[in-house]
């Protein structure tokens, strides 16, 4: 006997959505830390570290996230390391986000014209003073819209965690579907929840972009 798609089922989906949100934050915060290091290394690091960071970015950007999750989930256990779905999914999402955020932020720092470096160094500012007072404040303004935009990507990409058995929103949807056998209704509800999470962020990102353009270079 199949169950109906009722309040309990919606509750299950929302519980899954909580994990989606938590996982997204872990990915974003962890990814930000990795991304900061990567951006710094790419902009001012020594050649060897720079090459390493570039290789990391290319490896992550050149392979599917799903493959990376499998790699961590199954790869570790083959090496004798028992890794929970939580850890495998978190690590792969952090590394994924770190590569993209690092690349986005590197681009933002390098988008500041060379003449700003020149003008500030001609006033006697040292490297860290240039970064702090001249380069980063300008880079930050450019970085906010794409960063918020990427956060939306992260939220959607956490759905891949369902494949290794992590119960987030999509996996909760699969389970509710199995119980109710109403895939269309359930996945529509799942999609609506994702949309409710992502759309405000997309709006915000677009709003920031417009605000930035109006106030550009000010």
């Amino acid at each position: 006997m199949f169950r109906d798609f009722g309040v309990d089922e919606v509750g299950l989906l929302l519980k899954g959505a909580q994990w989606t949100v938590l996982l997204s934050f872990i990915a974003f915060i962890g990814g930000s830390i990795v991304g900061l290091v990567v951006a710094a290394v790419r902009v001012v690091g020594p050649r060897s570290l720079n090459a390493l960071a570039t290789g990391y970015i290319q490896a992550v950007q050149g392979t599917p996230l799903l493959g990376q999750m499998f790699l961590f989930f199954f790869g570790f256990s083959i090496m004798g390391l028992e890794v929970s779905a939580w850890v495998a999914v978190s690590v792969s999402l952090i590394l994924f986000s770190g590569a993209f955020l690092g690349d986005i932020w590197r681009g933002c720092i390098q988008a500041i014209p060379q003449t700003q470096w020149e003008a500030s160094s001609c006033l006697g500012l040292g490297f860290f003073q240039q970064m702090r007072y001249v380069i980063l404040p300008q880079a930050l303004r450019i970085a906010i819209p794409p960063t918020v935009g990427f956060f939306v990507q992260i939220i959607k990409n956490t759905s891949l965690a369902a494949v290794v058995g992590f119960v987030e929103l999509l996996r909760a949807g699969q389970m509710v579907t199995a119980a109710t056998f109403k895939p269309f209704t359930v996945y529509l509800a799942v999609a609506l929840i994702y949309f409710a999470l992502c759309y405000p962020l997309s709006l915000w990102s677009r709003h920031l972009e417009r605000k930035l353009n109006v106030a550009h270079s000010h």
Binding site: Q116, A119, G124, L125, G126, Y133, P137, Q138, S217
Partner: peptide, 21 residues
Amino acid sequence: NLRLLRQRLGIVFQSYNLFPH
């Protein structure tokens, strides 16, 4: 130490190069 020296040599460029922010 160019940083010290540059405090005594002002330079102004064709494209102003003010800090826009």
